[in-house]
């Protein structure tokens, strides 16, 4: 997170840190357990000639949540009283699940979604923590997830694919 640069809006000042904090309260529209900052898609926030530039990296190319995410960012920042906002799309380097924060991973698991693992499959069942698992499908209810099942508690669960 960046801090330091502060701008004066009317009778109050607003730091970049406060803006990051506000963005950290915006939930992902499809997985509301984690915030856009946890998800790692907000790459940069900076002032350019009185306009707030927010750089966002899309998760999956066709993810229908992308336009909703843009809307939610603009809504949150407008509520902070920021008059001019410019959303920039950054494709490169492409978003990776490595950018999901530790807190984000923990929140995913608490929500019942196994966080991404470099090994390509979930570490353990998010419900009972057993490690004997099987894949049901490489795809799931959103572009970022696959479906797995726990062989111990027999519950199906979502796995956040590692990309």
């Amino acid at each position: 997170m960046q801090a330091g640069s502060t701008i004066t809006l009317g009778d109050r000042s607003l730091s970049l840190e406060q803006i990051w904090q506000r963005l950290d309260e915006v939930p992902d529209p499809e997985i509301p357990a984690i915030s856009l900052v946890d998800l790692g898609i907000i790459r940069d926030v900076r002032w350019e000639d009185g306009t707030l530039e927010v750089t966002v990296s899309p998760t999956y190319s066709g993810c229908p949540a992308t336009s909703m995410i843009k809307l939610e960012i603009i809504k949150a920042l407008t509520e902070l009283g920021i008059p001019r906002i410019d959303l920039k799309r950054q494709l490169s380097p492409p978003w990776t699940t490595d950018w999901i924060s530790e807190r984000g991973r923990k929140r995913l698991e608490d929500y019942g979604i196994a966080p991404p693992q470099p090994a390509g499959g979930p570490q353990h069942c998010p419900h009972c923590r057993a490690e004997e698992l099987e894949r049901i499908s490489q795809f799931g209810s959103t572009p970022c997830k696959a479906q797995w099942r726990c062989k111990t508690c027999l519950e199906p669960f979502d796995y956040f694919k590692c990309i």
Binding site: G62, Q138, F139, G140, Q147
Partner: peptide, 20 residues
Amino acid sequence: LEEDIALANIALDLTGHTQL
């Protein structure tokens, strides 16, 4: 159901690439 979802997801990715 799983195959149905998979094909729709692949179509979605490809639609995203089309936009780019």
